[in-house]
């Protein structure tokens, strides 16, 4: 295991970019278990109230959901491309691609906002009188919907902020072809958030 030898100097002259990447992957492992807790509840409740879940999922807007999936998948493409561009020292292109990712993240959140407000205006939100009159399975479905898309949206928001910093770092030469781990790790995080959505989409919009 020769590749794991050697220590990083504290002064940071020799950067351990692989070590940084491992750290990021480990963080994503913890995220898998964090979202895992929610998916466990979803699957248990769905198994218990299959019929109610079918009914409630009919409320979801398939068009907006599909559109959001496409937006997020494309943003994953742009951040991946930006890393290749960075490594090829095409910094301008990298910045443009990162900016595109931020914009698509914002579009995702705006669409999400319209979905939520549409539901809230119908009186469907946790603890609302309308929701509490519905069946147990429907209460749980919408509870899960708000919690899971909400926490996912929070992750998107954090990602947008972090990528904005990366744009700044790339412009100021803090992130370069020789020092790419900040951007690479941001990319890993963004892709992970994308993967969570890849599972949320069928669970809430398609399984009707």
């Amino acid at each position: 295991m020769s590749y794991e030898r050697g220590a990083i100097e504290k002064s940071g002259e020799q950067r351990d970019q692989t070590g940084a990447k491992y750290g990021m992957w480990f963080f994503l492992f913890t995220e898998i278990l964090f979202f895992g807790g929610m998916f466990i509840l979803y699957s248990v409740f769905r198994a218990k109230y299959t019929q109610d879940f079918h009914l409630a999922a009919g409320e979801e807007n398939l068009l907006l959901g599909s559109l959001n999936t496409a937006v997020l998948l494309t943003s994953s493409l742009s951040i991946a491309l930006s890393i290749s561009a960075l490594k090829k020292e095409n910094y301008r292109l990298s910045v443009q691609l990162q900016t595109a990712t931020v914009l698509m993240g914002l579009i995702f959140l705006v669409i999400k906002y319209f979905e939520w407000t549409a539901k809230i205006s119908k009186g469907i939100y946790p603890d609302s009188p309308v929701l509490l009159k519905m069946s147990a399975g429907q209460i749980l479905f919408f509870g899960l919907y708000y919690v899971m898309t909400g926490l996912h949206g929070l992750h998107v928001l954090i990602g947008i902020v972090v990528i904005s910093f990366m744009i700044y770092f790339t412009k100021t030469g803090n992130v370069t072809s020789g020092n790419f781990s900040k951007l690479e790790n941001t990319g890993l995080y963004w892709h992970f958030v994308d993967i969570v959505w890849i599972y949320l989409f069928p669970l809430f919009y398609l399984i009707t």
Binding site: S76, L77, G187
Partner: peptide, 11 residues
């Protein structure tokens, strides 16, 4: 499958 593609190539 989609998650796998993202994992293997994008990540």
């Amino acid at each position: 499958l989609k998650a796998g593609l993202v994992l293997f190539f994008f990540m």
